[in-house]
Design a protein around this nucleic acid. Structure first.
Length: 512
RNA sequence: GGAGGGUUAGCCAAGUGGUUAAGGCGGAAGUUUGCAAAACUUCUACGCACCGGUUCGACUCCGGUACCCUCCUCCA
């Protein structure tokens, strides 16, 4: 593997070198569980899953930590409003989040640590920072002293003096007094009016952690002081990640993270995602609109992670079709392989391969495409380019072997493809499927099925279908067509296959 | 005001200092199917926001303009 990654810290692509051979340690900024995550959140989470899968595909031992922020301003405010204990409130959203990850076919992270369960680690780190003179107490709260860290601003490229002067007006309204205008809270003194009964009695006082410190404490616990990769949304670069660096480096006195990777945001139908435009969609919103989760996954992976992506409903549809095409070819190849294995065990003739000249060049074409695929991914995870290669292969295969099977095809009984080619193509497909997490196997069995539940078809409609099929057997086609039209006007579409007629209720894709 | 990223066909989206600017969706024509759907084949950007510059040559490098997005204290 020869992976190049764009490092936000240096603003250029760098060759990835793991700290320990064949091992990679990744920390991904996870959700704040105060509401249901939206599709934009999942884009950046999905990016860490892609990394996870890519490394695994190359037999790396991956440790992926994704934090759950379950104690902060928003969770506390949300719980208060919902009149629930904080933990009950956050558990609900955490559960939703974990369910969504499964729905989107994420590989499970190594661990999902909760901030609320790492208060001792947080306190220890703050104590260290106090001891080393990087933090100070003021009115019961504890702040990080920015002036004590020279490298502050290196990641986000901000000029501390200049930048923060401009924001001074807003800071005036802040109720916490601070030494320096830009210092941020490590520990917030308990304020009954705001925090209610949410507090911890600790050696550094009664209160709760600031937002940034949890990530420093938890990454150190699970990944050590120095690890390979830290990911998150672009908006986290400042101040969150900048502050994390400051805390961790100052507390440990050691290098922190080698590669900082940031995923770009999402636009919705050409507009920014915002509450006022009412265009914030959760995964559940999309599923309600008949979006297939794997189509959503495909869609989000079809563009480069560092580019702003314009999410549209039309694109989910397009993605599903593209995905179905991949699934179809995959299924065909699997069926081929099965047939070959069967014939190989029943008769050892080995006749399944009829070696033609063409097959050698085809084999090298497949290998070439596979190399291109990997090379694209190695180039800062260029998923769009890689998908292009996969479709190139798909096209070549269908063209060469005239794979014209309809989606309802039955596996061929006689092997027609040389085994070496099937194996090579299938290996490519399987690798791509694993890295992209598209679950083509599941899809290929799904796409041949009626996507709708048969039991939902009313009796009178079923009767009409039966009537039409009787007419068809009698070759009374014009009468049969009349029934087809009638069903269509009732909102049902018929698809004739060799075995049976599939009935589909026509769904008008409403957005609400 | 400051910092960063972007603008490629109807839509999404790769990419390169110089023969034909990937791929997907859509569209068109055709093959096939009783019809339909699906599938398959072929075609579908004389141009890469605009204006300058560097260069033998720029969509690709440099500068400027317009528009969009992100960040500037808790928003992925």
């Amino acid at each position: 593997m020869n992976l190049m990654l764009y490092n936000s810290l240096t603003r250029q692509k760098e060759r990835f070198k793991p700290i320990a051979q064949q091992k990679v340690k990744i920390y991904s900024c996870g959700p704040t569980v105060y509401n249901t995550p939206h599709i934009g959140n999942y884009r950046s989470f999905l990016f860490s899953d892609l990394l996870h899968r890519f490394y695994k595909a190359f037999d790396y031992q991956v440790t992926l930590v994704m934090n759950i922020t379950d104690i902060d301003n928003k969770t506390i405010a949300g719980a208060k409003k919902a009149q629930l204990p904080l933990s009950a409130y956050t558990k609900h959203y955490e559960q939703e989040f974990l369910t969504d990850l499964k729905t989107l076919n994420f590989l499970p992270a190594t661990t999902y640590p909760r901030a609320s369960e790492h208060i001792p680690e947080i306190v220890t780190m703050i104590e260290t920072l106090l001891k080393k003179g990087h933090a100070y107490e003021d009115s019961g709260s504890i702040y990080f002293k920015l002036a004590s860290f020279r490298d502050y601003g290196k990641l986000s490229g901000i000029d501390v003096e200049h930048q923060l002067a401009g924001a001074s007006n807003r800071i005036e309204a802040d109720e916490y007094s601070r030494d320096t205008i830009s210092d941020f809270a490590l520990w917030k003194m308990h304020k009954p009016t705001e925090d209610g009964n949410v507090f911890y009695e600790t050696t550094i006082g009664k209160g709760r952690p600031g937002w940034h410190i949890e990530c420093s404490a938890m990454s150190q616990k699970y990944l050590g002081t120095h690890f390979d990769i830290h990911t998150g949304g672009i908006d986290n670069k400042f101040p969150h990640h900048e502050n994390e660096i400051a805390q961790s480096v100052c507390a440990t006195g050691k290098p922190f993270v080698n590669y900082w990777l940031h995923a770009a945001h999402l636009m919705i139908e050409g507009q920014k995602m915002s509450k006022s435009l009412n265009n914030i969609y959760t995964l559940r919103d999309l599923l309600k609109n008949n979006a297939h989760p794997l189509a959503i996954r495909y869609m989000l992976l079809s563009t480069h992670y560092r580019h702003t992506y314009n999410f549209t409903f039309a694109n989910i549809e397009a993605s599903y079709k593209a995905l179905s095409r991949l699934a179809r070819t995959y299924k065909y190849l699997e069926a081929q392989l099965k047939t070959q294995l069967r014939s190989a065990t029943s008769n050892h003739s080995g006749k399944s391969t009829s070696p033609h000249e063409d097959h050698h060049s085809l084999l090298s074409t497949i290998e070439e495409k596979y190399r291109a695929f990997i090379t694209h991914l190695e180039d800062d995870l260029n998923t769009s380019g890689a998908l292009g290669d996969l479709f190139d292969l798909t096209h070549i295969l269908t063209k060469t072997f005239n794979i014209t099977d309809p989606p309802h095809f039955t596996p061929p009984t006689q092997p027609v493809l040389p085994q070496a080619i099937v194996t090579a193509a299938l290996n490519f497909y399987r690798k791509a499927d694993f890295i992209f997490g598209l679950n083509l196997k599941q899809l290929s069995s799904e796409t041949v099925q009626n996507p709708l539940n048969h039991s939902n078809i009313p009796k009178d409609i079923e009767d009409l279908v039966t009537e039409r099929n009787t007419l068809r057997r009698q070759k009374a086609f014009s009468k049969a067509d009349f029934v087809r039209k009638k069903l269509l006007s009732l909102g049902y579409q018929l698809i004739d296959t060799q075995e049976k007629t599939i009935v589909q209720k026509i769904t008008s894709p409403s957005k609400e």
